[in-house]
Protein backbone atom coordinates (compact mmCIF):
# COMPACT_ATOMS: atom_id res chain seq x y z
CA UNK A 1 0.00 0.00 0.00
CA UNK A 2 1.36 3.40 -0.97
CA UNK A 3 0.38 6.31 1.22
CA UNK A 4 -1.49 9.22 -0.29
CA UNK A 5 -1.12 12.89 0.59
CA UNK A 6 -3.58 12.70 3.49
CA UNK A 7 -1.63 9.82 5.03
CA UNK A 8 1.65 11.64 4.69
CA UNK A 9 0.33 14.93 6.06
CA UNK A 10 -1.31 13.33 9.10
CA UNK A 11 1.60 11.06 9.95
CA UNK A 12 4.13 13.82 9.33
CA UNK A 13 2.17 16.23 11.51
CA UNK A 14 1.90 13.65 14.27
CA UNK A 15 5.64 12.93 14.33
CA UNK A 16 6.45 16.60 13.84
CA UNK A 17 4.38 17.76 16.81
CA UNK A 18 5.88 15.15 19.14
CA UNK A 19 9.46 15.84 18.07
CA UNK A 20 8.98 19.62 18.10
CA UNK A 21 7.68 19.54 21.64
CA UNK A 22 10.23 17.09 23.00
CA UNK A 23 13.40 17.95 21.09
CA UNK A 24 13.13 21.45 19.62
CA UNK A 25 11.53 23.05 22.67
CA UNK A 26 13.84 20.94 24.85
CA UNK A 27 16.88 22.43 23.13
CA UNK A 28 15.45 25.93 23.57
CA UNK A 29 14.86 25.24 27.23
CA UNK A 30 18.47 24.17 27.77
CA UNK A 31 19.77 27.17 25.83
CA UNK A 32 17.61 29.50 27.95
CA UNK A 33 19.51 28.41 31.08
CA UNK A 34 18.30 27.03 34.40
CA UNK A 35 16.05 25.28 35.00
CA UNK A 36 17.05 22.76 32.35
CA UNK A 37 13.97 20.68 33.06
CA UNK A 38 10.41 22.00 33.06
CA UNK A 39 10.14 22.42 36.82
CA UNK A 40 10.37 25.51 38.97
CA UNK A 41 13.46 26.00 41.13
CA UNK A 42 12.74 27.03 44.69
CA UNK A 43 15.01 28.24 47.47
CA UNK A 44 15.08 26.87 51.01
CA UNK A 45 12.20 29.15 51.95
CA UNK A 46 10.11 27.62 49.22
CA UNK A 47 10.14 30.73 47.07
CA UNK A 48 10.30 30.24 43.33
CA UNK A 49 13.62 31.58 42.07
CA UNK A 50 13.48 30.33 38.47
CA UNK A 51 10.72 29.15 36.21
CA UNK A 52 10.90 27.05 33.05
CA UNK A 53 11.42 29.00 29.83
CA UNK A 54 8.58 27.08 28.22
CA UNK A 55 5.48 26.13 30.14
CA UNK A 56 5.35 22.31 30.41
CA UNK A 57 1.61 22.55 29.79
CA UNK A 58 2.39 23.71 26.27
CA UNK A 59 4.92 20.94 25.70
CA UNK A 60 2.72 18.15 27.01
CA UNK A 61 -0.21 19.62 25.09
CA UNK A 62 1.73 19.51 21.83
CA UNK A 63 2.71 15.87 22.43
CA UNK A 64 -0.89 14.94 23.14
CA UNK A 65 -1.98 16.82 20.03
CA UNK A 66 0.54 14.81 17.99
CA UNK A 67 -0.81 11.57 19.39
CA UNK A 68 -4.37 12.76 18.71
CA UNK A 69 -3.43 13.36 15.06
CA UNK A 70 -2.12 9.80 14.92
CA UNK A 71 -5.44 8.62 16.32
CA UNK A 72 -7.24 10.63 13.65
CA UNK A 73 -5.11 8.95 11.01
CA UNK A 74 -6.02 5.52 12.40
CA UNK A 75 -9.67 6.53 12.18
CA UNK A 76 -9.19 7.73 8.62
CA UNK A 77 -7.53 4.47 7.62
CA UNK A 78 -10.23 2.48 9.36
CA UNK A 79 -12.96 4.30 7.44
CA UNK A 80 -11.25 4.57 4.06
CA UNK A 81 -10.34 1.27 2.39
CA UNK A 82 -6.62 0.84 2.01
CA UNK A 83 -6.63 1.16 -1.78
CA UNK A 84 -9.17 3.96 -2.03
CA UNK A 85 -8.05 7.39 -3.09
CA UNK A 86 -4.68 6.41 -4.43
CA UNK A 87 -3.80 5.68 -7.99
CA UNK A 88 -0.34 4.45 -7.13
CA UNK A 89 -1.39 1.39 -5.23
CA UNK A 90 0.91 -1.57 -5.65
CA UNK A 91 -1.17 -3.85 -3.50
CA UNK A 92 -0.85 -7.53 -4.57
CA UNK A 93 -1.36 -7.39 -8.26
CA UNK A 94 -1.88 -10.90 -9.55
CA UNK A 95 0.53 -11.95 -12.26
CA UNK A 96 -0.81 -14.32 -14.88
CA UNK A 97 0.64 -15.90 -17.96
CA UNK A 98 -1.97 -14.50 -20.32
Amino acid sequence: MEYNTIDRVLLGASSGLVLFSVVVLGVLEILAGKPYSPVEITNEAGEVVATPAIDPTIRTGLVLLGLAVLLVWFGYRALVPADAGTSESIHSREQTAD
Partner: peptide, 10 residues
Protein backbone atom coordinates in the same frame (compact mmCIF):
# COMPACT_ATOMS: atom_id res chain seq x y z
CA UNK B 1 5.79 -0.43 5.45
CA UNK B 2 5.42 3.34 5.62
CA UNK B 3 3.70 3.51 9.01
CA UNK B 4 6.71 1.94 10.67
CA UNK B 5 8.94 4.40 8.87
CA UNK B 6 7.08 7.24 10.58
CA UNK B 7 6.75 5.79 14.03
CA UNK B 8 10.10 4.09 14.69
CA UNK B 9 12.28 7.14 14.00
CA UNK B 10 9.91 9.27 16.09
Amino acid sequence: RPLTAYWLPT
